[in-house]
């Protein structure tokens, strides 16, 4: 029997467990189609703001030992432009990532998508390198609750809060999102980091400080998913350094209902999605599981 790779993340149902993470490749409908056809369970858009943002000057993304450093600066075409672009979408599960400073901005953006086929909204409460948004919002639990509850009041699709490691205990941010009515949590975002070129003695990224992604952050992300899933009764999407089916399963066993893959696209290209699907299916056959949900949180029993 072929194992069933479909997953449920609270009210969100996807045919396959690995999604494209926000910030990676996510600005055109044609690319979304291609990634979905290549095995992703859903695609998460780049984080969209109310107005278009150009982002920072290059270097914005560089490889380092263990992963990547980036400070792209949330460049994006703006929610209204993006909503118009995905209007023809019928069958690709698109999760719209939104970034902003106050609840009014989020309400404005969600309203742009009224006539679009949106699987869920993911609120970026954790980008570590742009002022007044992302992690700075996530570090303010009261604001998180206000934003999540406003989005819940206007959105027809489920709402996910994406958390990261800021100055506030991220578990308090998770709690704030739950209090606002979030349907699920994505954990984690990149971790605030920097790299310096020894020859020139300069920070490599033009923004100096950015976010670390890739294999280096995976154990941290697994720990966070485990802690969230142990402490709260809310579905979790695991994200951080996943580049193989074994990595994906680690997150599932830690308590994630599904996973997101980002940086690995830079190493494995978009074949990474089918590699993860095939690897998980083989594992399930070998171990005798028929459904993904049977494996969620198995590490918590020890």
């Amino acid at each position: 029997m072929t194992p069933d790779l479909s997953v449920s993340i609270g009210p969100i149902s996807l045919g396959r467990p690995a999604m494209l993470a926000s910030g990676i490749l996510g600005i055109s409908m044609e690319v979304f189609n291609r990634i979905y056809r290549n095995g992703a369970g859903a695609v998460v858009s780049k984080s969209l703001s109310k107005e278009p943002w150009e982002g920072y000057a290059n270097p914005t993304i560089v490889g380092i030992k263990g992963g990547y450093l980036n400070a792209v600066g949330l460049s994006n075409p703006g929610a209204p432009y993006f909503a118009e672009m995905i209007k023809p979408n019928k069958d690709v599960p698109i999760i719209v990532s939104l970034v902003g400073s106050i609840e009014d901005e989020f309400e404005f953006m969600v309203k742009q998508f009224e006539n679009c086929n949106v699987t869920a909204y993911e609120l970026n409460l954790s980008c570590p390198h742009v002022e007044k948004v992302g992690l700075e919002v996530g570090d303010d639990p009261k604001l998180v609750t206000k934003i999540v509850s406003r989005v819940k009041s206007v959105a027809k699709a489920p709402v996910i809060g994406k958390v990261g490691l800021g100055t506030t205990n991220y578990l308090d941010t998770v709690k704030a999102a739950i209090d606002g009515g979030a349907d699920a949590i994505t954990a984690i975002n990149t971790i605030r980091a920097m790299g310096i070129d020894v020859e020139t003695q300069r920070p490599i990224l033009s923004h100096k400080i950015g976010g670390l992604s890739g294999p280096a952050i995976k154990p941290v992300a697994v720990r966070c998913v485990y802690e969230i899933a142990s402490k709260y009764d809310i579905p979790v999407i695991g994200c951080g350094g996943i580049s193989s089916w074994e990595d994906a399963l680690e997150f599932i066993f830690a308590g994630a209902s599904a996973v997101q893959v980002g940086s690995a696209v830079g190493d494995r290209w978009i074949d990474v999605f089918s590699e993860i699907n095939d690897g998980i299916a083989n594992y399930m056959k070998k171990k005798g599981y028929s459904k993904m949900s049977e494996m969620v949180g198995l590490a918590k029993r020890f």
């Binding site: 490749l25 600005i27 055109s28 690319v31 980036n70 940086s263 696209v265």
Partner: peptide, 19 residues
């Protein structure tokens, strides 16, 4: 921006021009 098929800035139709 990245040159290695991560950021998507150079997408044209369904391809990434850099990758």
């Amino acid at each position: 921006k990245c040159g290695i098929g991560i950021c998507g800035s150079c997408c044209m139709d369904e391809v990434m021009v850099c990758h």
